[in-house]
Nucleic acid binder design. Sequence first.
DNA 1: TACTGATGATCAGCATACTGATCAATAAGG
DNA 2: CCTTATTGATCAGTATGCTGATCATCAGTA
Lengths: 158, 158
Amino acid sequence: MTEMRDMPGHLARRFQQIAVAVFLAEVEAAGFDLTPVQYAALAAIAANPALDQITLAGLIAYDRTTITGVIDRLAQKNLVIRRAGVRDRRSRELLITEEGRRTLDAITPAVEAAQRLMVRGLTKVEANELIRLMQKAIAAGNELSRAPLREDAGTQRQ
Amino acid sequence: MTEMRDMPGHLARRFQQIAVAVFLAEVEAAGFDLTPVQYAALAAIAANPALDQITLAGLIAYDRTTITGVIDRLAQKNLVIRRAGVRDRRSRELLITEEGRRTLDAITPAVEAAQRLMVRGLTKVEANELIRLMQKAIAAGNELSRAPLREDAGTQRQ
DNA sequence: TACTGATGATCAGCATACTGATCAATAAGG
DNA sequence: CCTTATTGATCAGTATGCTGATCATCAGTA
């Protein structure tokens, strides 16, 4: 493990670097301007109406302080609306707009193409194995980052 | 692939997120203050005296504009020296300091412990397979990011 | 040699990520 | 009901990473 090229940490950084580049290239080629992070947030908001930001952070494993800026940019693009919470006035409820939903639908093929491109050097069997192993390693390390994944916990926090 | 949890892009981001957190925790526990990126740069500079920044960027697959700031911080910590190039006055030659070398030697056990922690949910065989598959996917996608890996090309350019 | 193109480094600007702090609002306890 | 602890969101500050531009210098050629 003395060599950088055998270190999981280096490989993780490099694979993510390529994954982001591929994502942005595919999305731009499809005529859109959305980052991977913005896409994940938009998809989660679409699937969970009136989501608050902390729950969103848990669903997609973002740091809570990162969410603020991401939502700022999605709102500025008119893809989501952020409004004051009803039950809890500290919280913000997130809703996808019509334009947000149209964008999400239209962009999905590009996103899926990007996923395939990221592993284009692997056979289908190898790609599935890579996915399985990453999932397993991530599950074991979930609590080690400041932004762990939090499963849905019902439909929403009550 | 409709589900985020099966998307290589999401898994790449998540695995890298955990890898960085583990690295920082181990390094801090060992009494040091170095990021993964700074560590990789320091190790490359130690192994390649009088490296210029573009070659360094290729060796560790960083964007060239990122290198400037990373070297700024390493120099501020007195771990490396950046001096004007002799053959080419546009370039900067990078050299590790005595303190840099001591730090590198002292920090290596923590870095290696971090590499093992990142894959602690996997068997040894699985960890090796994950490394192999990431290497293969990365090799196929090397040219897709702005900062591809450039092999050593001899000891140094020209 | 003078011109043209390429190259090394840096910069401004933007978007993640994180640390730690603050502030308003809520929840829990006595 | 009132005090205390907790929680949702945001902010300031720092460090990657990238895009595209600029500037100085170098290399190749007419």
